[in-house]
Amino acid sequence: MFWWLARRLGQMALVLFGVVSLAFLLVYAVPADPAATLAGPNASAETIASIRAQLGLDAPLWEQYLGFIGRLLSGDLGTSYVLRETSVFERIVSALPTTVLVAIGGLIWQIVLGVPAGIYAAYRRGGWVDRTVTFVSLIGLSAPSFWLGLLLIYYFAFSWGLFPLNGLGDPIIWYLVLPTFTLGSGGGAWYARMTRTNMIETLDSPFVRMARAKGMPERTILWRHCFRHVAIPLVTMIGLDFGYFLGGVVIVETVFGLNGIGRLAFDAISNLDTPMIVGTVLFSALFIVVVNFIVDLLYSVIDPRVRLQRA
């Protein structure tokens, strides 16, 4: 396990370095000038040149890259071009709680909506419940997040006044219902289909037929034995989704006016705010690789065979 952990940590470091380097280079590949964007459309060439000198954009690309890597290794993500004298790290940390709340809420909706529906549909396969779950899942997978979010805002917030229109307030859970449901509905549909498929395969396996032949209760077969086999792919998807959500869900945070990391990244891209773009990309990649690492550790807890392979 020691060498496995060392190898995984090394892989995580290489992935983060590659993602950050690629993000930095791709930002400079965009045919636009951040200094001109900050100066405005009516700025003179002298003003733009002065801003470029202040931001250090007049230096060669390799020099800017080495300076960025040096600052990054010392824990400095730089200062935002748009939010002057504002540390990128502090700004991202301040936006993180909103994204965490939305991510947890969306994940809860996915699990609550998808997993029980998939299990019941598999157990009653071929019946009207199975057909209904399959049809609703198809609709959930096909509905774009921005369309669903705007629809929920119009009816449940604007027309009927049941929920707040946007932002966060008190009680905070009331403000999170619509955005988290929007975030989790598509994933819930995917979880239902995946759980149904894996559960059907497990229910048709020989050990289930043997358990039924011995008179084991259906509830015990379903939850203690079958669900354990479905848990590994389910944990994988939950981990991947949670890491993705923590990286910032741009559409949901923008539609509902939430000042999370996704909204921060969207504004940074719109303003060509290079330090903020790279900072949000770094945090997104960090969340994903860390959550994947935790998921790998959970495999050993769920399935002892995985632990034996790594020993």
Score class of each variant (00 low, 15 high):
Leu22Ile: 12
Phe283Asp: 03
Phe68Gly: 06
Ser185His: 13
Thr274Ala: 09
Leu77Pro: 01
Ile200Val: 09
Val289Tyr: 08
Ala189Asn: 03
Gly243Glu: 03
Val136Glu: 00
Asp33Gln: 05
Asp170Ala: 13
Trp190Thr: 01
Arg193Pro: 06
Leu96Lys: 01
Phe245Cys: 13
Gly279Asn: 03
Asp241Gln: 15
Met237Pro: 03
Val20Leu: 09
Gly184Ser: 13
Glu85Met: 15
Gly75Arg: 01
Leu77Tyr: 00
Thr236Ile: 10
Phe207His: 04
Gly114Ser: 07
Asp273Asn: 01
Ser270Arg: 13
Ile261Arg: 03
Thr79Ile: 10
Phe163Trp: 09
Thr280Arg: 07
Gly262Thr: 11
Gly279Leu: 04
Ser159Cys: 12
Ala121Cys: 11
Gly243Val: 07
Pro304Gln: 14
Leu240Tyr: 08
Glu253Tyr: 02
Glu201Asp: 15
Pro60Met: 02
Ile269Gln: 06
Arg84Pro: 10
Ser21Ala: 14
Cys226His: 06
Gly262Glu: 07
Ile111Tyr: 05
Ala311Ile: 03
Phe245Pro: 12
Ile288Asp: 02
Glu218Gln: 07
Ile288Asn: 00
Ala117Lys: 02
Ala49Trp: 06
Leu55Ser: 06
Gln64Gly: 08
Ala39His: 02
Ile104Asp: 12
Gly106His: 09
Ile288Met: 11
Thr132Pro: 00
Ala59Asn: 11
Tyr123Leu: 14
Val235Tyr: 11
Val291Ser: 02
Gly243Ile: 00
Asp267Val: 03
Trp160Gln: 10
Met210Gly: 08
Gly127Trp: 10
Phe256Gln: 05
Trp223Asp: 15
Arg125Asp: 01
Leu9His: 04
Tyr244Phe: 12
Val27Phe: 09
Gly67Glu: 07
Asp170His: 14
Gly78Tyr: 03
Gly188Val: 00
Val136Lys: 12
Thr180Asn: 10
Thr180His: 11
Ala32Asn: 07
Tyr299Glu: 06
Val27Asp: 13
Thr79Leu: 04
Pro217Tyr: 14
Leu96Thr: 02
Ile269Arg: 05
Thr37Trp: 11
Arg8Ser: 00
Asn259Trp: 00
Leu5Met: 10
Ala189Cys: 12
Ser300His: 08
Ile139Met: 15
Trp128His: 12
Ala192Asn: 10
Asn271Phe: 01
Ala32Phe: 04
Tyr81Met: 10
Ala213Arg: 15
Leu240Lys: 08
Arg91Gln: 11
Ser270Lys: 09
Val88Gln: 05
Phe89Met: 01
Leu240Val: 11
Gly161Arg: 15
Gly239Glu: 06
Leu264Lys: 04
Ser94Trp: 04
Lys214Ser: 14
Ile119Trp: 04
Phe287Lys: 06
Ile92Phe: 05
Ser94Glu: 07
Ala122Lys: 04
Leu176His: 14
Leu165Thr: 10
Tyr154Lys: 13
Pro275Gly: 00
Arg91Phe: 05
Pro217Asp: 15
Glu85Cys: 13
Arg84Thr: 13
Asp130Met: 09
Ile172Pro: 03
Thr99Gln: 12
Glu46Ser: 15
Leu148Cys: 02
Tyr299Pro: 05
Thr220Asp: 03
Pro233Gly: 04
Phe181Ser: 08
Val306Thr: 06
Ala32Asp: 02
Met210Phe: 14
Val235Leu: 15
Leu298Lys: 07
Leu66Thr: 08
Thr280Val: 08
Ser284Ile: 07
Trp128Glu: 11
Arg263Gly: 08
Phe156Tyr: 10
Arg193Ala: 09
Tyr191Ile: 02
Leu61Glu: 05
Leu282His: 07
Gly127Ala: 01
Ile111Trp: 03
Val250Trp: 04
Gly18Tyr: 11
Ser50His: 14
Thr254Glu: 08
